[in-house]
Simulated scan of single mutants.
Amino acid sequence: MTVTATSDRLWQQIREEAQRACAFDPVFGRSLVDAVLAHDGFAAALADLIGRRLGGSAAERARFTSFSRDAFRGAPELIEAAARDLQAIVRSDPAIAGLLAPLLHFKGYVALQAWRVSNWLWRHDHRDAALLFQNEASNLLQVSIHPAASIGVSVYLDHATGIVIGADVVIGDEVTILQNVSVGRGSSLPTRSPRIGRGVYIGAGATILGDLSIGDFARIGAGTVVTCDVPGGCTAVGDPAQLTNCPEPASAA
């Protein structure tokens, strides 16, 4: 499979959905022409979407779009990651029947793709531009992810209001994060950031702070405050977090 195989198939599906929507509702369809059908590929449409959502003026929109295009040209794997993120929403959310709605209307999705651009800028020493992306995503989308964080693919920011992810946080593939979640450094030394494994679910209002690891497929309950390790497969609930529903080896430990 080539790097762009998933994104190419997904783009064709998005265009077909947009064409059906245009035929069904010509008034709504006029907006789809600019947002989807006028573009020659997923990368161009996504760069334009980021520019629309982060840029308040025409000049700002052009600047954010240009930065995004540069990132996607320099790192085509960002588009593949964006495709897998979009597919993850459809798999995870039973209320979603297609790709078009989360692409155009889910602010958590565009915030995550804006972060992918900011992370590329950060790693290529365009740090002022990277922080500008973070600032505007925080102001306009209520999602603040530091460019120096590390986030895998097939990630779903659900509802995506009040999410804060700090510098050097590591988040694995297939993670779901709900609203009002904070992940970052604690106050004790050394001030290292959390490492979150694959397939972790983080409920609304959870706080995860400090030098800790959350194992693969763990679940963090709503409102839980986590300041210690959570073994893989366990559920953490409460303030402070208590472990429950752990696999046998973790329970014995």
Rank of each mutant, 00 (worst) to 15 (best):
L157F: 15
D125C: 01
S118Q: 02
V153T: 15
V155H: 13
L157P: 11
F106M: 06
L103A: 00
F106A: 02
L121Q: 05
P102Q: 02
T161M: 05
I145K: 07
Y156I: 03
D128V: 07
V110R: 01
S144R: 12
D125H: 08
H105S: 08
D125K: 06
L141R: 08
V155E: 13
L112T: 10
H105L: 08
H159A: 14
L132D: 14
L140K: 15
A129P: 10
D125R: 09
V164L: 08
N139I: 11
A148L: 04
L140R: 15
V110I: 13
L131W: 04
A167D: 12
Y156Q: 13
P102V: 06
P102E: 08
S118D: 08
G162M: 10
R116D: 07
A130N: 07
R116E: 09
A160D: 15
P147Y: 04
A149D: 13
R123F: 04
S150P: 02
P147R: 02
G162D: 14
A160V: 15
G162K: 12
G166K: 14
G166H: 11
A137F: 07
A137V: 11
L141P: 07
A129R: 09
P147I: 09
W115F: 15
I145L: 06
L121F: 07
Y156K: 10
A149Q: 11
I151Q: 05
D128K: 04
T161V: 12
P102K: 00
E136L: 03
S144L: 07
S144Q: 14
D158A: 12
R116K: 06
D125M: 00
H105I: 02
S150N: 13
L103Q: 03
N139W: 07
W122P: 04
I165K: 03
N119H: 12
V143G: 01
R123Q: 13
S138I: 07
G166N: 14
W120C: 00
V153Q: 12
A114N: 05
A111Q: 05
V153N: 05
V117H: 02
H146I: 08
A148E: 07
G108R: 02
Q142L: 08
V153K: 04
D158Y: 14
V143M: 02
D158E: 11
F133N: 13
N139K: 11
S144W: 01
A148K: 05
Q113S: 05
D125T: 09
D128E: 11
G162C: 11
L121I: 12
N135Q: 13
V155F: 10
N135W: 08
I145S: 07
V117T: 05
G162Y: 11
R116W: 15
W120Y: 11
H126A: 01
F133T: 14
T161I: 12
H126Y: 06
A137W: 09
E136C: 07
